[in-house]
Simulated assay, not measured.
Amino acid sequence: MTSALIVAAGSSRRMGFQKLTASLLGKPVLRWTLEAFDNCPAIDHLVVVVSDATRELVRAWAADGMLRKPVTLSEGGAERHISVYGGLKKLPPSTELVAVHDGARPLITSDQIIRCINRAREIKAVACARPVTETLKRVDENGVITGSVDRKDTWIMETPQIFDRNLLCQAYERVMQQNLTVTDEVSAVQLLGHHVFVLENPESNLKITYPTDLLLAEQLLQARL
């Protein structure tokens, strides 16, 4: 059994308004994200980590049958790693693989979810990612460029990040016990010394962070429809 853990409890500080409820081609951003996993045949259950801004929306979608798969809600925490830890506690007992995904990544495709899941079945720890193609520079506190960063072997982490359930739970237990802060599941699992493998995503999978990202996401979605 594979469960998706969708993190939808962020405050959207950089956005200036709640990005998960913002309209994207007539539907909230979060609705696009949830539908991608709800429509994916490799996903059996949805655990959605919610905030005050998203809780009632998700409840209504589940109650109205807009989401066909079982949905469990989990309350978000002050930081992302706390939200994920709480979501892991709500997984169905039969869950073997967990696909953790940012609610603000509405462009993820069912095909990529399936590719990541199939790979995780083999190696237990997979992160959806893409190689860095831009020139990277180091900049000091005054905004002065101080040097270059070699982009060889450099990847941008995306989600979903998919793991063996026991491995990920063990990793987050260590995070919480040692009062650590991690920004993604890769970092948590690496604390155990376990290898995490990347799987390149051939499709656009941007994270909605700024208002202009909504415009770009609309263009990308329209090109797919």
Rank of each mutant, 00 (worst) to 15 (best):
Y172V: 10
T212Q: 14
E185N: 13
N205V: 07
R14F: 12
A129H: 05
E218I: 08
S11M: 03
P160V: 02
I113S: 03
S51E: 10
R13M: 02
T146P: 05
K137Y: 15
V71A: 01
V49D: 10
P28A: 08
N201M: 09
S3K: 04
L91K: 11
P93A: 12
A60P: 00
N205G: 05
I145F: 09
E122F: 02
I208D: 04
A53S: 12
A125F: 01
S148M: 08
R14A: 05
R224N: 06
W61K: 03
E203I: 00
E185I: 02
I114L: 02
I145P: 00
H81E: 12
L191Q: 07
T146D: 04
D102W: 05
H194E: 15
S3D: 02
H45C: 06
G26N: 04
R80Y: 12
N179R: 14
D213E: 11
P41D: 12
V29P: 10
V48E: 08
S12H: 01
R105P: 02
D44A: 15
G143T: 04
L46E: 10
G16P: 07
L97D: 03
I156Y: 06
Q222A: 11
T33V: 02
L192Q: 08
K137E: 10
Q222S: 15
K152F: 07
R55P: 04
N118G: 05
P202Y: 13
P92Q: 04
E203Y: 14
L180Q: 10
V58Y: 08
K89F: 05
G76Y: 11
L46V: 12
A36S: 15
V196R: 02
P93Q: 10
C128H: 03
A188W: 02
T154Y: 07
R68Q: 13
L107T: 05
K19A: 13
L46R: 03
D64W: 03
V175D: 01
T146L: 09
Q112H: 15
L199M: 03
F17L: 01
Q178K: 15
S204T: 09
R31N: 04
S83A: 14
T2W: 01
L168A: 02
A60D: 15
E56H: 14
R119D: 09
R13E: 12
F37M: 06
G65L: 07
N201G: 01
V29T: 12
T159S: 14
E122Y: 04
R105D: 11
V58C: 10
E173F: 06
L46I: 11
R224M: 04
I6E: 07
P160L: 05
K27M: 14
R115A: 14
W155L: 12
D44M: 09
A63H: 12
L20F: 02
S3Q: 09
I145E: 14
D52C: 00
S94N: 13
V139E: 05
E35S: 06
V132T: 11
R121D: 00
N201L: 09
L67S: 06
V139W: 01
T154M: 15
K207T: 13
L57R: 01
K89G: 12
A223D: 08
